[in-house]
Design a protein around this nucleic acid. Structure first.
Lengths: 152, 152
DNA sequence: TATTGTTATACTCTATAACTATA
DNA sequence: TATAGTTATAGAGTATAACAATA
């Protein structure tokens, strides 16, 4: 009884925004750390990719460079990220996560993970495994670098 | 080889924002219709629940009433939604989707569904079924009305 | 007094357009 | 000329605080 493609799409479009909203609210609720989802994602990416350029992070997140520039501004203002010159190419920028940023990132990650784990704790093991597998497939489908550059 | 709870949570936290970002970008790309995800969700909810109060929609979406009020303002300005007095309780408001709103909602839904269906078309049927099942489980886990009211 | 909603204010996210600096 | 990034400007999403109207 496999549904058709559009039915799958419909489920995705129904459920994903609900989860996202929930994650967002949860992150906002922990005021002390208070990272928005985009801030969190940017920090996590730069942490995994020390010395990224602005463009790389923007591309990864599917944002335009100006949007990313502002996002980074905010993180730097709060002392979570640092922006240095790139030694080889002076147009570029080297982004790094500060110690403080790393601490916040870690705490925020743990907090959100605990929250989600708690939510999932009521799900039977086999169903949870189904979720795991689904996420793995979806990750490849919606992989990074998906952003379509405008024809403009 | 079932992973632990936290591993499941980690996958969710990694993948869901990526999908969301993709949906958001896609909706923005179709400028003519140009509904944001929250606008889309609000319209869809009110369409399914003719005559909802502001509070009901806000609760469904996990937003505060002021946020919802503004969101609705925007939809009304664009002629997609209407706000009437509730006959029985004059504090309340009756929200309805206009004909134009319904048309836009339909077109936007179709556009986004086609986009997602296209993305999913490369996925084997059995994996797609796994995704379907995962979404069904996740819908119950993150069901509407999840919003925790602040203790404040 | 409790409920429903709006207004005022303030940030963040995000985009496009226009610009600067470097290659 | 092409690439990397920033600044200017603007609209939407979101929150808290303060308020008005109705029950």
């Amino acid at each position: 009884m496999t549904g058709d493609l559009e039915e799958s799409a419909r489920k995705l479009l129904e459920v994903v925004p609900i989860i996202m909203q929930d994650i967002r609210s949860e992150m906002r609720r922990r005021r002390s750390l208070d990272l928005t989802v985009p801030q969190f994602r940017a920090l996590a990416f730069v942490n995994r990719n020390e010395g990224s350029s602005l463009w790389e992070v923007a591309f990864h997140m599917g944002l335009t460079p100006p949007s990313m520039s502002r996002l980074v501004d905010g993180l730097i203002e709060r002392g979570l990220m640092a922006r240095e010159d790139h030694p080889a190419d002076r147009r570029r920028v080297r982004l790094t996560v500060t110690d403080h940023g790393l601490a916040i990132l870690g705490a925020s990650t743990q907090g959100t993970l605990s929250y989600l784990a708690d939510k999932l704790s009521g799900v039977e093991a086999d169903k949870r495994e189904v979720i795991d597998k689904a996420m793995e497939t979806l990750r490849t489908v919606f992989a990074t670098g998906t952003r379509k550059r405008e024809v403009t």
